[in-house]
């Protein structure tokens, strides 16, 4: 047993540390009814509501389903990423963060674990949503390159929103962290995700066109529709990278300073 007695400078094993944290998060999702419902069932339900219930009443050029699916996907990615805020807040309140911080492990492994698990969870959640969409008549025109770009872009969306959620989880109580889900659930409605912004009241159009969900959804719509995205790609990337950088810096500072609530 001499080999495992701790002494001196600890050995660093960042990949193993992060892998352990990802496995932990995967169990958290897969083992709670709550986690499974919010990760997989709610996105499909939103899909059904918009296509089956509202779809008939909303007029667009061509198929509404082709228009709305990218919006629903982005909404689901945001909603799914936001659940990380609750998990991080739970770790903060339960004292788990203190335990992790006093281990000789690689820095903020627990946060990297949350982010990687979120990427896996949310990409997986897209599969049933897309499956149901295809059954309902969604016909994407993307070629292979388009799909690859779409997946890379979706990953960027998840990473940026999840880091933002980490910041929220580090500063907010569990209940408050839970409520940021609603921001991600409602902001997409005030974008071009579900109806064109030109159908909105003029005073709302300014906000809808300026907020990040509009260029993000437009970019994904172009990628899945087999159209090369235009200026909105750069707007979307600027927003997402900006959110990502600010949130990573914020999370690192908060993680270092914060002791359990």
């Amino acid at each position: 047993m001499g080999a495992i007695t701790s002494s001196g400078a600890p050995r660093q094993a960042p990949i193993a540390d992060i892998a352990a944290m990802v496995a932990r998060e995967a169990r958290r999702t897969l083992r709670s009814v709550d986690g499974l419902v919010s990760a997989f069932a709610i996105p499909v339900a939103i899909m059904l509501v918009f296509v089956v219930v509202f779809g008939g009443a909303i007029e667009t050029d061509g198929q509404y389903i082709d228009y709305v699916v990218p919006g629903i996907l982005v909404l689901c990615l945001g909603f799914g990423s936001a659940s990380t805020a609750t998990s991080v807040a739970q770790d903060m309140t339960s004292g788990t963060i203190d335990r992790f911080k006093t281990l000789p492990i690689f820095g903020a492994s627990v946060l990297y674990g949350h982010v990687i698990a979120s990427v896996l969870r949310n990409l997986a959640a897209c599969i049933p949503v897309l499956g149901v969409a295809l059954l309902l008549g969604f016909r994407p025109h993307a070629d292979l390159a388009g799909w690859v770009f779409a997946i890379v872009f979706a990953t960027l969306i998840i990473v940026a929103f999840t880091w933002l959620s980490c910041v929220a989880g580090l500063v907010l109580s569990v209940d408050a962290a839970n409520s940021i889900t609603f921001i991600f659930l409602f902001l997409p409605y005030v974008s071009s995700g579900f109806v064109g912004t030109d159908t909105m009241p003029v005073w709302l159009q300014g906000f809808a066109n300026a907020q990040p969900f509009t260029p993000v959804i437009e970019t994904l719509r172009d990628l899945l529709g087999g159209v090369a995205p235009g200026a909105e790609l750069w707007q979307a990337c600027a927003w997402l990278v900006g959110i990502l950088v600010a949130s990573v810096i914020g999370s690192m500072l908060l993680y270092r300073r914060t002791v359990a609530k």
Binding site: S6, S7, G8, A9, P10, T93, S94, G95, T96, D98, R99, T102, L103, P104, A260
Partner: peptide, 13 residues
Amino acid sequence: RGSISLTGQFASV
């Protein structure tokens, strides 16, 4: 951190 362990006020399991 290599020489200590902390068991906090809450059971952190």
